[in-house]
C-alpha cells in the first residue's frame, strides 16, 4: 500500500469510525464470552455444588444442565450478533471508504 494512500485512509472519518466502532464492539463481545465461560468453568472448579443443585425438589435435572446448554446457545448468539452488525453497518462504512479511494 502506498504511503499517500495510507495517510489518506488513516484520516478518513469513515475509517476512524469503522475502526473505533468495530474494535469496541468486538472487545465487548469477547469480554462477555470470556466472562460467561470463565464464570462457568471457575464455578466448576470452586463451587461445583452450585451447578449440581436440582431445578426443583422433585426433579433430577440439575441447574447445571440448562446453564450448560445456555452457554452453548450464548456463544452462537454472540456470533450472530457480531455477524449481523458487521455485515451491514461495518461493511457499509467499509464500502464508503473503498468508494472514496476510487473517486480520487
Amino acid at each position: 500500500m502506498k504511503k499517500e494512500l495510507v495517510e489518506k485512509i488513516k484520516n478518513n472519518p469513515d475509517y476512524i469510525a469503522l475502526v473505533s466502532k468495530r474494535s469496541s464492539f468486538a472487545i465487548k463481545l469477547t469480554v462477555s464470552m470470556l466472562v460467561v465461560y470463565f464464570a462457568f468453568i471457575l464455578t466448576i472448579a470452586f463451587e461445583p455444588s452450585l451447578l449440581g443443585a436440582p431445578l426443583s425438589s422433585d426433579s433430577v435435572t440439575t441447574v447445571g444442565i440448562p446453564i450448560g446448554m445456555a452457554v452453548i446457545v450464548f456463544a452462537f448468539i454472540l456470533t450472530g450478533i457480531y455477524t449481523k452488525r458487521a455485515n451491514s453497518e461495518f461493511d457499509d462504512l467499509n464500502n464508503k471508504i473503498k468508494q472514496s479511494i476510487k473517486e480520487n
Partner: peptide, 14 residues
Amino acid sequence: SIGFLVGWPIILFM
C-alpha cells in the same frame, strides 16, 4: 463440549 465451542466466537471477533 462447551470448552470446544467457546473458542469460536473469539476467532470471529479477533
